[in-house]
Simulated scan of single mutants.
Amino acid sequence: MSRIEPADISKRLSVGEVAKRSGVAVSAIHFYEAKGLITSLRNEGNQRRYARDVLRRVAVIKVAQRIGISLASIHEALASLPQGRTPNAADWARLSRRWQQELDDRITKLTQLRDQMNDCIGCGCLSIDACRLRNPLDELSEQGAGARLLDPVD
């Protein structure tokens, strides 16, 4: 973290101010920073100070999390912005289209999983030989014994 000049301190927000204005816990702000989603500078007293645009980044992070986007995907999306700047309306449109595809893919997989559950309701056996959830399409049996995936890799 870089240091900031005393004259610039009044333009920046403390972690408590960011938390209060964004509705996010201080611990979450620290977590987002540790994950590289937001950045801060340090004042002479070694306290974090955030640029005001961090509020928009936190809002984007919270909306993306609320719709089920992983932190890794959020990080990748924010890192794709020129010079790490805060997303604007055009950026949000691009990011939301990308995330919409992720959500559509997840909905498709969850729908398939839900539909496969109907084969198991009532039987309770979860047969390694016949259960489509426990042993999907029996494709993994050819790879030998050991842990197997519930959701086969596409």
Rank of each mutant, 00 (worst) to 15 (best):
S2P: 10
R3S: 11
I4F: 14
E5D: 15
A7W: 08
S10M: 03
S10Y: 02
R12A: 12
L13Q: 12
S14F: 09
E17L: 11
V18N: 12
V18M: 11
V18H: 12
A19R: 05
K20P: 02
K20A: 15
K20Y: 08
R21A: 12
S27Y: 04
A28H: 06
I29H: 09
I29P: 07
H30I: 10
F31S: 10
A34W: 02
A34E: 15
K35Y: 04
G36E: 06
T39D: 13
S40W: 03
R42A: 05
E44M: 10
N46W: 10
Y50L: 11
Y50Q: 11
Y50R: 12
A51L: 05
D53I: 08
V54K: 07
R56T: 15
R56V: 14
R56W: 04
V58S: 04
V58F: 06
I61M: 04
A64P: 04
Q65G: 01
Q65N: 06
R66F: 01
I74Q: 03
I74A: 05
H75R: 13
L78T: 06
S80L: 14
S80I: 13
R85T: 08
P87L: 05
N88P: 04
N88E: 09
R94S: 08
L95G: 01
L95Q: 12
W99N: 02
L103N: 10
D104R: 14
R106I: 05
I107V: 06
T108V: 11
T111E: 10
L113Q: 03
L113P: 00
R114P: 01
D115M: 03
D115L: 05
M117N: 04
D119S: 11
D119T: 07
G122W: 00
G122Y: 00
C125L: 10
L126S: 12
S127R: 05
S127I: 08
D129H: 08
A130T: 14
R132F: 00
R132C: 09
L133V: 05
R134H: 10
L137A: 12
D138Y: 12
E139G: 08
Q143R: 14
G144Y: 07
A145L: 04
G146E: 03
R148I: 10
D151E: 11
P152G: 02
D154Y: 07
D154W: 08
D154P: 15
